[in-house]
Amino acid sequence: MLVYRSQPYSLLEPRTAALYSEGNVLNRSTALPRLAWAGIALAGTLLPISGHADDQDVRDYRSHVMKTLGEQFAALNQISKGKAPAADVATHAEVLSITAGVAKVAFTPKVLGGEAKPEVWDKWDDFSKRLDEMVAAANDLAKSAKSGGVAAVTPKLSSLSCKGCHDVYRVQKK
């Protein structure tokens, strides 16, 4: 792979850096050591393109993140109903937990459109709190999956209801 000199991501156009502020830390028990964060900040150095995330990119990104949550949640539901391999429960719960952890960053830039209602930013404190709750619940689910398998996960799945948040913050699907 050819290496092209380009600016590190964090030094790119101010808008991009500001859009995704580095204040968000992954909400995981295995927090990354500081050195790894430095490595991530330098991620742009050896990566090919100098970046500019515009509004559509922001919408696309958060759409992918939320859809991943949807797919993983659906998979877990299938597993809890015995319609998919029980052995996969810990994997999906872990993916759900990690993905939930990055959701807040996805919504940090105030870019209207897609399925996000303006309430997301108008009521940011509440939205943000709910995201935190989702992350906590997902982390808990992942732990249960590791230690107790499907049996431990099934009762907790309902604690991850998407509806409450979506009713307020997501554009209704026709």
């Binding site: 050819l2 092209y4 380009s6 090919p48 393109i49 100098s50």
Partner: peptide, 16 residues
């Protein structure tokens, strides 16, 4: 297209 993109295209036949 940026100068970077075009350089890559000419040099490798591929750019994003």
């Amino acid at each position: 297209w940026s100068v970077d993109d075009l350089t890559k295209y000419l040099h490798t036949g591929f750019s994003l």
